[in-house]
Design a protein around this nucleic acid. Structure first.
Lengths: 337, 337
DNA sequence: ATAAGTAGTGCAATCGGTTGCATTAAAAAT
DNA sequence: ATTTTTAATGCAACCGATTGCACTACTTAT
């Protein structure tokens, strides 16, 4: 039924070993033999069975990306999708498949299956899935992995790739200061998350470097909804010493703040400036359009896959990669002094 | 190094066959033996090697989802992501991995690899990748597959799952008519695409059933940008016999139209009604919020995976699945007569 | 009491490749 | 002309499971 290496061997009058060597092309084979084998392979429409190769090679030739089922929200956003696409691109060009899976509370987790049953040669996982016990398992097994985002702990012991969040904040702050804004509120997400911490750190640093003392009460934590951001902005704008700019940790927050500022009829960008992390297409369609910190998550995904492949192929040193951000100025900060 | 079935067998004083039978649990094994084997497996921390199982079973225990690289846009949208999540969920609960890959123009395409090298037991692919030659290959090999969307041809010969686009349009039209709108423009995407054709068909049918003759010049094709939709709406609204409602094929189009209507200072929903396909979170945050035709692509993905699994497990009949849509009424059509 | 059936297990082949070692023939060195 | 080296290929074991068939020891039926 299926054509095997032995069928080719027989028809070409050589041994299966020779056929195998031709397929893999890393032994010296005479041109004559090689050509004959190729001809026969063509004739019989032969395709090597990857299941057999995998077993013989002890490798699945697959990378796995593990999703945290609780992160449904972030799984849905296009940044995440772009990094998947980046990962897949690198995997494919290196002859690896990409497996996508998600953690499930009960029973053996998919991660453990991937590791112990050799379903993947390496895995990429989000910081939210990192636990001490998982890390120990991975390190004990010397199982290649890279964290897609700076991990909450053991940051020096594991491979990770991330956006340069601190630099993103800094570029935003510097931009706002250049535009003459002086009193900036940072509206971020859960402060337990490393990326938020880093953004706050960058925010403070940038202010400090310009001789401005960052105010603790101007660093706000918000949930992901537009409403929460709206309320936050309203309350700030109604203070006796209101801020003159907002740095938002994502587009949804920015939309809420934008709405609040407009509802109070403060002029953007004249009175109030807004900068936001992420640069979804919609950021250019709001009125006014939003100055955004662009984050190239496709590139991030490529890096993640690349580091993982390197780790699989030869145990390299631990690698940390920070992908820089880029500020796109739009109307929401476009004022002249 | 690695613990195999033979190690277990030896330590438990049985044959490898017995261990295998215990693992797969489909043979009668005495409780005594089974317990001993489980104990030894536990003790030695045994995990069956899936590569070996795959070879022996002649199956990769994987489904593959193929992306069309040219569809980057749609790959990025959250609807697509939701269907991936649905597919993955069903795959995982049935013990299958999900492989994601994308087509590449040169060389053997990933699809062919999946088929011929047995990297997957079945594939899910978008209509945009369907060609006669690919279909022939798949059908010749009796390779299980399902199309994620109604295919452009041979619709009766292949498995496919899709949103009920016609019904979506109908529900929107009926809703608009109930609300007293009489002159509806359909702004869709590329009319070569089946889903657009179906939406138009549903649009016409619903009007026809209510005794309204659909006007050909009220069925418009637009590209995916907000600007194009904006211009379309402006030109319609400036006609001598302007429409009083728009049915938009996606949220981006709706945003453009919304902007146009507001810029001409026509009241929504009093003068102009808007309904849109898709129901992204943003649709509820616009002003006014948008009446939307909700499409459950998570469910769609689940169906796709389910049909595929059925096809893999036992050659069932061709299946076509249409997932119904649901209208969420919001402010953009919320007027009283 | 003998035949027939059944539960529980082992043997050995098999899935389809890969690869270390041995072998042969031809080329290069002495 | 003999020895050493090198190129090209084959042999057979191996990767780690699965499974059809055979066998043994009991039950159950006749």
């Amino acid at each position: 039924m299926t054509v095997t290496i032995r069928d080719i061997a027989k028809k070409a009058g050589v041994s299966p070993s020779t056929v195998s060597r031709v397929i893999n092309g890393k032994s010296v084979i005479s041109n004559e033999t090689r050509n004959k084998i190729f001809a026969v392979m063509e004739e019989l429409d032969f395709h090597p069975n990857s299941l057999a190769r995998n077993l013989a090679n002890g490798s699945s030739r697959a990378l796995a990306l593990v999703i945290n089922a609780e992160d449904k929200k972030s799984f849905s956003n296009q940044y995440f999708t772009h990094s998947v696409f980046g990962i897949e691109q690198i995997a494919q060009t290196n002859g690896y498949n990409l497996i996508i899976t998600h953690n499930q509370s009960k029973g053996m987790t998919p991660i453990e299956q991937l590791i112990y049953e050799k379903k993947a040669d390496g895995i990429i996982l989000p910081p939210s899935l990192i636990t001490i016990s998982l890390l120990k398992k991975l390190l004990n097994q010397k199982f290649p992995f890279v964290v897609l985002g700076e991990p909450p702990f053991m940051r020096n012991e594991v491979n990770w790739v991330d956006i340069n969040n601190a630099q993103g904040s800094e570029s935003a702050v510097n931009h706002l200061l250049e535009k003459g804004y002086r009193s900036i509120v940072f509206v971020g997400e859960n402060q337990q998350q490393i990326f938020t911490k880093n953004r706050i750190a960058g925010f403070r640093d940038a202010l400090g470097k310009q001789g401005i003392e960052p105010r603790q009460d101007f660093i706000i934590e918000s949930d992901g909804t537009q409403e929460a951001a709206y309320r936050i902005a309203i309350s700030f704008l109604q203070k006796t010493d209101p801020p003159d700019a907002f740095l938002c940790s994502d587009n949804t927050i920015a939309f809420g703040i934008l709405k609040a500022v407009k509802s109070l009829e403060r002029a953007i960008p004249q009175e109030i400036g807004i900068v936001t992390f992420d640069n979804y297409p919609l950021a250019q369609y709001t009125e006014p359009s939003l100055t955004s910190i662009d984050v190239d998550t496709y590139l991030l995904g490529e890096h993640a896959a690349f580091v993982l492949l390197k780790t699989i192929e030869n145990e390299t040193n631990i690698q940390h990669i920070l992908v820089g951000t880029k500020l796109f100025q739009r109307e929401s900060t476009d004022r002249n002094l």
